[in-house]
Nucleic acid binder design. Structure first.
Length: 788
DNA sequence: TAGGGTAGTATTTTT
DNA sequence: TACTACCCTA
């Protein structure tokens, strides 16, 4: 970036300084350098970047360049020499966001930002601080971090120890209560008595306390503690806090609208010095995109920023660089129905573009078929599948699309399904590693003691537990003692002895062997790999692949312990195999992303706004749902396509549904109603789109009904009859089915990644009808199966 | 102890 | 409908 931008550099008009050593060229470079990253910012963005002193709230609407502002601001702080990398605290919510920011800053300032140790998630930074001062809060710095699963198992033990019926008061529920308290920054002594009494016949508070004690005994913390314990550390040790006050010259927070009370308290401790200087705190967020209220986020935090930090400068970013005029206007009109807003009006210089479309379908199946067809049409026009997304309200909606896309042979990816780290095989493998490295990790040991099944059942574990509790030693130590006594029956005793020998052997190798090799060794020798190799179910192959992936992902870590620390915080794996795919994800998962074309199916009253959200949170719940709709619309750059079905199967029952109230809240001027004719009107709560429908009076006469009938008939024939000509289901004619000869024949045994093993029942070009052992008969494209 | 049968339940999800 | 968690039986 050169000359035109230079004139906008503040100092450019000042009298020229004396020639610096190195001559004019060097001086020009020095002047031009800062301009390079400021170039191309609009005035508001530039203000957000350059207002370094004092508290700043940046209200950044969707697509207004929020991340750019954040990263540029950091670059600016660094380039202007106001602080060095280790003096900047930059907090994000997800590891993904942290990664992205790190990478973008690097690009901006043209060098690596390895030196920004305090850029990370709340939790990652919490751990870092906590490890340094662990002993001040009664932990050893080697403490382990439990995930949700561990927490629940621990709580189960606590509940049972308290003599409470776990069936009546499930551990999972207690976990939610405690999580809620922790989100609000409440330690056991601070939970309002009335509230604590609400669980377990009045013993909720006691259980919470007991759980915390168990954590301490195990030298463990859960995610909530990463914040709470840091808060406690700061409050009880002003000296430590003062140290961080001095350290963090600049603080930046991303997605401020998503902070919960605990995170707020944590930030405030760091931002508010006793001397009362104004903190250089910059929070960026969008109240209209607050969609995590249900997990403790307090929109209030952003709404009252100016009160919390007097003299705060509020900067609004309202120029949208992402979407077309119609999309933006539609989203703006919708969100205007919300009351509790700070108020922003997004605008764009972009063209009006295509109107947002609203389409109806007879049922969810037709919805999936129609969207599949549209995607294929877009693909033929040259649109990359990577630029197409289907955003759903609830994950059960994904399935219909998956099934349909498998049939069409349309590549897709599901984002935010079961997370890598949450998969059973990964957790099992990690448990083996944890138990090897940390022999006191009871929860890890318990998890895998009998995985694979080796005859160490409940009875044996009970004996270990009793002994452990009596003598205050970890389970594995208890096991070592007990195998030398007569307390166990001979068979489990021998098994347990062998297992303990194995663990001792692995532990001895921790230093000697590279951790990747050790990992493989453990999985091999424990019989864990073998267990899945023997398993003939559909998922087994994928699980083995995941295990390999796990071992691969250990590369680049110092040692096993380092890897485990990382994995407990950063539990996603970066994926991407290069192939173009349609993305399917929930609206929640879509925040922060953008696509050329966005499909928004399922805009029906029974689903979106989700009735549960309305029941539990009333008006606030409705507004959050509306924000979700807003997030969905604003993900689209050029095309947003809303769909609703008049029949949907929910929990296995067919329900007749009516279009979402959000559909009615869209502005007619920017919306185009297409295929309204195919929507079979039920006569209930008709939206204006029904009125646009010429056959509304008699629903049986509508083309939609007729088409639905035809589809149903075709679908029936497809599954019931072997006649080939009956397989021309509407919409499938476009599938790549002609001319090719399948390598499979009727009767072949095949394997499909999603459906498992099955027998080929019919061959039609490159399409197969397969009777799957578990999933029943499905039609699949032959490239999706292999010989079993 | 392990596997099968049954009952109960069923948004959104990051760390 | 589909999954899971638990109980009961072999």
């Amino acid at each position: 970036m050169e000359s035109p931008e230079q004139s906008r550099v503040p100092d450019a008009s000042a009298p020229p300084p004396r020639p610096a050593p190195g001559g004019i060229a060097a001086r020009a470079r020095a002047l031009a350098a800062p301009a390079a990253y400021l170039a191309g910012l609009n005035p508001e963005q530039r203000a957000a970047v350059e207002t370094l002193d004092g508290p700043v709230l940046v209200l950044a609407g969707a697509g207004t360049g929020k991340t750019r502002v954040l990263t540029t601001r950091i670059a600016h702080i660094l380039a202007s020499g106001r602080a060095s990398p280790h003096q900047i605290l930059a907090v994000t919510f997800t590891n993904k966001a942290a990664r992205e920011m790190r990478q973008r800053i690097g690009t901006l300032i043209g060098e690596s930002v390895e030196g920004m140790p305090w850029l990370g998630t709340f939790h990652a930074i919490g751990v870092k601080i906590l490890r340094r001062h662990a002993e001040l809060v009664g932990l050893k710095s080697s403490f382990t971090i439990l995930d949700t699963d561990d927490q629940v198992r621990l709580m189960k033990q606590v509940i049972e120890a308290e003599g409470i019926d776990e069936k009546r008061w499930p551990a999972r529920q207690l976990a939610q209560w405690i999580d809620g308290w922790k989100n609000r920054g409440l330690t056991p002594d601070l939970v309002p008595a009335g509230e604590a009494a609400g669980f377990g016949n009045g013993r909720g508070g006691k259980l919470y306390g007991a759980y915390q004690e168990r954590l301490k005994t195990l030298n463990a913390v859960d995610f909530g503690d990463l914040l709470l314990e840091t808060i406690r550390l700061f409050r009880q040790n002003p000296g430590v806090l003062a140290d961080y006050h001095r350290r963090f010259r600049f603080m930046l927070v991303d997605e401020y609208q998503d902070t919960n009370t605990a995170q707020y308290l944590w930030l405030r401790l760091l931002a508010q010095t006793p001397a009362g200087e104004r903190p250089n705190l910059c929070c960026v967020g969008d109240d209209d995109q607050s969609i995590y209220g249900w997990r403790g986020a307090e929109v209030d935090n952003i709404l009252r920023f100016e009160k919390d930090f007097p003299g705060a400068v509020v900067i609004r970013l309202e120029r949208n660089y992402r979407s077309t005029g119609h999309i933006l206007a539609t989203a703006a009109h919708l969100i205007a129905h919300n009351e509790g807003r700070l108020g922003k009006t997004l605008f764009t210089d972009d063209e009006e573009g295509e109107r947002v479309t609203v389409s109806g379908s007879w049922d969810s199946g037709e919805e999936a078929r129609a969207i599949g067809d549209e995607i294929e049409a877009l693909q033929r026009k040259g649109q990359s599948l990577d630029e197409i997304a289907i955003l759903v309200r609830a994950s059960f909606q994904m399935r219909e699309f998956e099934d349909r896309f498998v049939t069409l042979g349309l590549p897709y990816r599901v984002i935010g399904g079961p997370r890598f780290y949450e998969r059973a095989e990964i957790r099992d493998a990690l448990a083996y590693f944890r138990a090897t490295v940390q022999t006191a990790d009871d929860l890890a040991f318990e998890r895998i003691a009998n995985v694979p099944k080796r005859g160490l059942g409940e009875a044996t574990m009970q004996i270990l537990h009793d002994y452990g509790r009596r003598n205050g030693v970890p389970l594995m130590q208890a096991a070592r003692v007990l195998v030398e006594t007569e307390e166990l029956k001979p068979k489990p005793r021998q098994t347990l002895r062998d297992l303990m020998t194995s663990f001792a052997r692995w532990a001895a190798q921790v230093e000697a062997l590279p951790h990747q090799e050790l990992a493989e060794l453990i999985l091999e020798e424990s019989g864990y790999t073998e267990m899945w190799q023997k398993d003939r179910s559909a998922e087994a192959a994928g699980r083995l692949e995941n295990l390999k992936e796990l071992v691969r992902s250990m590369e680049g870590f110092e040692n096993m312990a380092g890897f485990l620390e990382h994995i407990s915080l950063v539990m996603d794996t970066a994926e991407g195999d290069g192939e173009e795919k349609v993305s399917i994800m929930t609206l929640h998962a879509a925040k922060g992303l953008e696509f050329e074309t966005v499909f928004l199916p399922g805009w029906e009253e029974a689903l979106f706004p989700h009735p549960r959200s309305l029941d539990e949170n009333g008006r606030a719940g409705l507004e959050e749902e509306r924000r979700l709709a807003y997030v969905g619309l604003t993900r689209a750059r050029r095309r947003a396509k809303v769909w609703f079905a008049s029949n949907r199967r929910i929990h296995g029952l067919w329900q007749s549904t009516i279009p979402s109230r959000f559909v009615d809240e869209l502005p007619e001027a920017h919306v185009e109603v297409v295929q309204a004719a195919s929507y079979g009107s039920s006569g209930l709560g008709m939206s204006r789109f029904d009125r646009a429908q010429p056959f509304a009076g008699s629903s049986y006469a509508t083309p939609g009904w007729q088409r639905a009938q035809a589809n149903m008939a075709a679908g029936f024939k497809a599954t019931a009859g072997p006649r080939r000509e009956s397989m021309t289901i509407e919409g499938e004619l476009v599938a790549k089915s002609t001319g090719t000869v399948s390598p499979f024949k009727v009767g072949d045994r095949v394997f499909h990644l999603k459906f498992g093993n099955g027998d080929v029942a019919e061959v039609d070009g490159n399409k197969l009808s397969v009777d799957f052992d578990k999933a029943g008969r499905k039609r699949v494209v032959d490239s999706f199966v292999e010989r079993a």
